[in-house]
């Protein structure tokens, strides 16, 4: 049985993807920020697939320490259950915000959760991924196309616009997938970014304010999260690594022209500095 890890699986796209992959015979390690919501999500998956193998680990991924602790716990779990092998890591946890707000270590929250948490977790799990020739999947978004990376003000403190920060975080997801392929193809790790489409979830409502109002109207046109989950299944199920970098549920698609090797490498080294880690040591 192959094991996959998926973050942000207590609601929306993450929950439905965890459910789908559990039904398709994967052993699923899932995460959420709240223990109670983790239990509820697990119950809900088991209700639709009683034989599913699914366990939840709560962790607040906006906190660097939680993300590193979580990867240690998952490594132990993998050593116990899966000979230390990880077939796929889906970095899906994400948020939208209405206002500028920072994490404990002073980073803008959307950047920290939507992108940097995945960077940290992938770092912690890279030995397990490389053992299995594993896949890293970033939940990106079509909105990454409207963004550029503000290298001189990554946290967007000057004239903060929550939507710009969201788009930039999603562009960073695609850039990170690109950087992983550029750097670690030799280790057998293969990375992808997924466009889930416009999906009817609560993500914008949790932001409140103007973002919440706009999202309430917009999400009515969205597809159900169970449909967007297929995009992830397409990347996890084939034995061979599927080709391409950016996918939706119909297949490969075009990504932003900002996604260059140069930008990817630059973001990678900035991220190592922001996290105080070095991938070289881990892999």
């Amino acid at each position: 049985m192959k094991t996959i890890v998926i973050t942000g699986a207590t609601s929306g796209i993450g929950l439905e993807t965890a459910r789908l992959l559990a039904c398709r015979g994967f052993s699923v390690i899932a995460t959420g920020r709240d223990a109670g919501r983790c239990k509820a999500a697990r119950d809900s998956i088991l209700a639709s697939a009683p034989d599913a193998e699914v366990r939840f680990y709560p962790a607040d991924l906006m906190r660097r320490k939680d993300a590193l602790d979580l990867s240690a716990r998952i490594r132990e779990d993998l050593d116990r259950t899966s000979a230390g092998c990880l077939h796929a890591l889906i970095n899906n946890a994400g948020c939208a915000k209405s206002w500028y707000a920072t994490t404990e270590d002073g980073l803008e929250q959307q950047f920290a959760l939507n992108y940097l948490a995945g960077f940290l977790l992938t770092y912690g799990l890279s030995p397990a991924l490389s053992r299995a020739g594993g896949r890293v999947i970033m939940t990106a978004s079509q909105s990454h196309k409207g963004a550029r990376v503000r290298w001189d003000d990554l946290m967007l403190t000057r004239r903060y616009n929550p939507l710009t920060a969201y788009k930039q975080s999603k562009l960073c997801d695609v850039l990170f997938a690109r950087a992983l392929n550029d750097r670690y193809a030799a280790l057998g790790i293969r990375a992808y970014a997924v466009d889930p489409g416009l999906v009817c979830t609560e993500i914008g409502n949790k932001a409140g304010g103007v973002v919440g109002l706009v999202w309430s109207l917009r999400k009515r046109h969205g597809i159900p999260p169970s449909v967007s989950a297929e995009a992830f299944a397409r990347l996890c199920i084939p034995v061979q690594h599927p080709a391409g970098l950016y996918h939706d549920r119909h297949g490969e698609k075009a990504f932003s022209r900002q996604v260059t090797a140069e930008n990817a490498a630059r973001l990678f080294s900035v991220s190592e500095r922001l996290c105080g880690i070095s991938y070289q040591e881990e892999t």
Binding site: S98, W99, Y100, A101, R158, Y160, G208, G209, V210, G212
Partner: peptide, 29 residues
């Protein structure tokens, strides 16, 4: 918007909350 608790309080005030809320990054500068 200093923390989640305050954000919840701002939201509970509805329009008045949004009107009196300041962009923190700007206020700081």
């Amino acid at each position: 918007s200093t923390n989640d608790e305050v954000c919840a309080a701002i939201l509970a005030q509805g329009v008045a909350g949004s009107l009196t809320t300041n962009a923190m990054e700007r206020v700081v500068r």
